[in-house]
């Protein structure tokens, strides 16, 4: 059913730390690696070795240049994937019921057997989180690795989304954002986590942690002592001689 379920107490989602993300794209690769072989149609690549390679990915990492009012520009790496919105417009526009939000944990999923590939859900999403698979003709999106997080065949430490499990800098966190006492909720509260494009009325579950303020640049250069070097001996004589010309 594409009617949204009543708000769930449990709201599973991601918290992404823009301060520690180094833009290594490991999450993109891990996501593609896991979702290529498990849940639903594999994420196809078109012309993978040609001049216009194009493929389906559920996670994309942008890099932005941000210039603060005081201080030099910084590079902020910015992973972008489904935010598992509470008022998910991608769900209600779906004509077939393929797109749905789970009542028990709030994960937004696509039932690929019912998807006609009309693309309207991708149009309704402000975040560009959905990509139509060119080979299968069905809509693909982040599943929050629903086939990992409840999977008792995996060791407990692996029961997290592939992107979170693989992140080498710990910039990605997974948990229940509906529980104010959860680790991710406390992280959001401590660091001032925010939602993307709140004016669109989608009420995303995922949160982004802003980059921490950087140390102020020291006015004096650490090389300053070297600038005052006085030449002595032969070099000093040469220095004085050359200054006469």
């Amino acid at each position: 059913m594409t009617a949204l379920p009543p708000p769930s107490a449990k709201k599973l989602g991601l918290v992404i730390d823009l301060d520690t993300c180094v833009g290594c794209q490991a999450c993109v690769t891990a996501c593609k690696g896991w979702n290529d072989q498990g849940y639903g149609a594999p994420l196809s690549d078109m012309d993978a070795y040609g001049s216009e390679p194009c493929g389906t990915f559920l996670n994309r990492v942008h890099s932005y240049e941000v210039t603060p009012d005081d201080g030099p520009a910084q590079i902020i790496n910015f992973p972008r994937s489904c935010l598992h919105c509470e008022d998910a417009p991608c769900v209600t526009v779906c004509p077939t019921g393929a797109s749905y939000k789970r009542a028990e944990d709030g994960i937004v999923l696509v039932n690929e057997d019912a998807c006609i590939g009309c693309g309207l859900c991708a149009w309704a999403c402000p975040y560009g989180a959905r990509e139509m698979d060119a080979a299968a003709g069905v809509m693909k999106k982040c599943t929050l690795c629903v086939d990992r997080i409840y999977n008792e065949n995996l060791p407990e430490e692996d029961r997290q989304p592939a992107c979170v499990r693989t992140c080498p800098t710990g910039a990605r966190h997974f948990g229940d954002l509906g529980d104010p006492e959860s680790a991710v909720s406390r992280l959001v509260a401590d660091r001032g986590g925010y939602a993307l494009m709140p004016e669109m009325g989608t009420r995303p579950v995922n949160r982004y942690l802003p980059p921490r303020p950087k140390d102020a640049r020291r006015e004096a250069s650490v090389l300053a002592p070297l600038l005052d070097l006085q030449a002595t001996g032969f070099a000093g004589w040469l220095d004085r001689l050359l200054e006469r010309f």
Binding site: V28, E65, A122, E131
Partner: peptide, 22 residues
């Protein structure tokens, strides 16, 4: 508003080298 990164934000490197579905 899209990135939440303040008024002076501009794309530095794209997430993919050729256009995707989006």
């Amino acid at each position: 508003a899209a990135t939440g990164l303040g008024p002076r934000v501009r794309p530095f490197a794209p997430p993919h080298t050729s256009p995707n579905y989006v």
